[in-house]
Design a protein around this nucleic acid. Structure first.
Lengths: 228, 228
DNA sequence: AATGAATCTGACCAGATGGTCAAATCTTGC
DNA sequence: GCAAGATTTGACCATCTGGTCAGATTCATT
């Protein structure tokens, strides 16, 4: 109800006012200010990842980006818009490494590479990982459709491939779905629960030896003992 | 600043007003209304687990518990108090199963039991799992100390035990810390990311065959192939 | 240097939200 | 059945927050 009224008001006020996307394109064609968008998205990632959507304060994001609140709202008309933009931007990066597992790959090498890359992501982009975690834990109100379409599609393909490799004896037999979940769970755990990991071990993935040990542990679990 | 003023005000107003804990005990000594506390805690778990601390609305919790907002505030004076209470209550349950891994246990049986129990928890108490995830991902502002003290203590003990078992050849050699993290990560993944899991597989742990497959997959990963 | 568009700002607002309070109602022990 | 305490409620408030707006400032182009 409130939403409807706001929307109407917005449409009625100025027909010429471009929506967020249009404005972004226009700006891109003309000149700078893109730097601002980047800074806003970075700031938004930090704040959303820490406080969740509801907890995030637009002021906090603006401050972190070095802008006034109205100025931020100039680039992203609503908090929702901004949240969506951050999510989209991060999602692309997130889906890339899975695609590198291909039929012509060597199975063990491909999984080793995938696990290593995912763990590097967890180390280098923990905020992105947390953002997804928060979104999915909320029931994925925004990403829901993407999960059911794009992601499912991708995973289905890899599952088929993994199954074939296992049938050929090139990988230990496991349920491929659960195998993938295991890789996601273990790698992202180091990003999402870094507080806990650090409380217990005193280390994070930034510590090289710790990273290596974590990686090896996951490899052992997924691929079985070194030479199976 | 604001906090300080609030506190002062509260203290000044009525010296006789008992804090939340005291009141709880008093009530307990006299009669019912404990049922209310239970209902409130249940409702709070649901709402906090879904929306996080900042996103949770006190009204929503009150509604879910079937009470008016002021009435809820009668039992828990602030949102913080309530959050803390829910967290405490859930934490106890959460730490129990780890303690069952004892020196006199059979190593493989003990880990099998632990994994199974954790997975059952993930199935039966997904909200509790999410609550912890949210808290830890925020940097554990409330549980931080508990993690560094109690939890670390417990884990250190189990790590030593696991190391001994491995030295005796009764378990495959793995870094014990990472082994424990792997168990936590994989089991809780099914609770915290159930939306994603369901989007991809169409199943949840409630489906018996799916539960068994998940369990077996984790067991294989942690314990190595059936007869190592 | 003038012009029009893009960018930025301070002041402001409406609604939501955590929390208060005085008074009403219910229980219990006597 | 009644006093005292426990519980519940409706009305209320101060503050916070997302978002608006009219106008100022900057910028690219001519």
């Amino acid at each position: 109800m409130a939403v409807a009224r706001t929307t109407m008001k917005r449409k009625a006020r100025k027909v010429a006012t471009p929506d967020t996307e249009t404005r972004a394109k226009t700006r891109a064609k003309t000149r700078g200010g893109e730097a601002n968008v980047e800074r806003i998205l970075d700031a938004a990632l930090s704040v959303f990842a820490m406080d969740g959507f509801a907890g995030a304060r637009i002021d906090a994001i603006a401050d972190l980006a070095g802008l006034s609140k109205p100025n931020l709202l100039y680039y992203f008309r609503t908090k929702q818009d901004l949240y969506l933009a951050v999510l989209k931007r991060t999602l692309d990066m997130w889906l890339v490494p899975l695609a590198r597992i291909e039929p012509q790959s060597d199975p063990r090498a491909a999984l080793t590479d995938y696990i290593t890359t995912k763990l590097e992501y967890a180390r280098d982009h923990p905020k992105a990982s947390r953002l997804f975690a928060i979104e999915v834990m909320r029931g994925a109100p925004v990403l829901g459709q993407v999960l059911q379409d794009d992601l499912k599609q991708q995973v289905d393909g890899k599952v088929t491939l993994l199954r074939r490799w296992m049938a050929q004896g090139r990988l230990p037999r496991r349920d491929p779905h659960h195998l993938i979940f295991m890789i996601w769970a273990t790698t992202q755990h180091y990003a999402d629960f870094s507080t806990q990991v650090e409380a217990i071990t005193g280390r994070t993935l930034d510590h090289p030896a710790f990273f290596t040990a974590a990686r090896q542990s996951i490899l052992d679990a997924v691929l079985g003992p070194a030479q199976e």
